[in-house]
Nucleic acid binder design. Sequence first.
DNA 1: TGTACATCAGTGAACGCGCGTTCACTGATGTAC
DNA 2: TGTACATCAGTGAACGCGCGTTCACTGATGTAC
Lengths: 221, 221
Amino acid sequence: MPSPETAIDTTAEDASPARRAGISRQDLLAAALRLVGPHRSLSSLSLREVAREAGIAPNSFYRQFRDMDELAVALIDLAGRSLRQIIGQARRRALRASSSVIRLSVETFMEQLRADDKLLHVLLREGMVGSDAFKAAVERELTYFEDELKVDLIRLAAADGATLHEPALVSKAITRLVFAAGASAMDLPPARDPELVDQLSTMLRMILTGSRAMAAENAPR
Amino acid sequence: MPSPETAIDTTAEDASPARRAGISRQDLLAAALRLVGPHRSLSSLSLREVAREAGIAPNSFYRQFRDMDELAVALIDLAGRSLRQIIGQARRRALRASSSVIRLSVETFMEQLRADDKLLHVLLREGMVGSDAFKAAVERELTYFEDELKVDLIRLAAADGATLHEPALVSKAITRLVFAAGASAMDLPPARDPELVDQLSTMLRMILTGSRAMAAENAPR
DNA sequence: TGTACATCAGTGAACGCGCGTTCACTGATGTAC
DNA sequence: TGTACATCAGTGAACGCGCGTTCACTGATGTAC
């Protein structure tokens, strides 16, 4: 569940026939999110579709955004902020409870993927398609994610008295794997989620184990 | 460079004004490939664009393919077959020369990414967008790739007297990472390729090292 | 409190465009006699 | 070899559609006096 700060209401409102009560950027973002799904990418939405879903005339769209690209970037930023916050909370919770950080993080990620706000869909799908501004926005969110993960990984390893070989690369590899797995998972029935969580957790564990082993090799004492 | 078997000529031919000499499926596939690039995904091409590029009337397209989806799937199959063959050759060459299999494979992959036939672009870009038939085709190629990689990984480990923990997962993790890295690399200038090859090689080595370490842990003797 | 006015979020109609798809056609090539 | 004919890969014109964008507009809301 997204935090109040980043959550936006995705409930449809019916438009009064004469004049809308006052549309906001939030309303348009919510309308776009409602249209996104396993078979609709953000970049395939038309301005008219979003306006229709929001219950406004097509040209009213321009009062809020210059074009669909601007809306898309706003949505990607929103999604990235929301995700980092959620995963961050999960990791801190796991650290306090001394349970498996990897597993809890992966589980949280999958839960968020299945949440009905569809924010994560945006981040997973739009990375390789769409305009440059578009891809740059996704890339920026990925980098934020990696940076926060790296800090946590180092802290985690230190708590175990271990060292990581190239923590930045570890964090990059993990981030890319998780996002790639998430993108595939979107197209699969949720019933397969536990299996995917298992697989992904094992993959991440391999990376971490490898990194520790390589650090130990390079500096045996 | 693609093998003769899978290569198709991407040279533009000028159409005679009256009537084309005889268009083939290959010609249309080549035209589509010519249009694909860092900023154009296969799924964003229109039927009319491809016909225009091939120098035929839009309706002539239907003599060769039912629709753009059918063309896309054909192109994805072609790209997958070509890539597996190229990487397979690279791995066998590395095995014979006893040089680093990981590094040579990654380098070959990047070379292929920069090759002007653009076949790899198709495979990297179209996985998360487009129709179901579309995504299924990409998924199928990824699975083929994983299967061949798994066999090679087991053989490689055995030659070193080592065992792998969950070789299927190792191969899946490597495949997904390589494809994700390739997709990002497409948008970067080729000058950054060596850096990316380094990073990717290190990531793959972490996975393999981790897998070996986990296998050793589970069965210490 | 009432009145005149500026602001500006929202409107409906219209534009030109590229799209996928259909239609009846044409004329070169291959086949039967 | 020559002739009649079937085939069918390619054609140009036309269709209806949804798109992004523009235009002059309207009427509720807020402000100044």
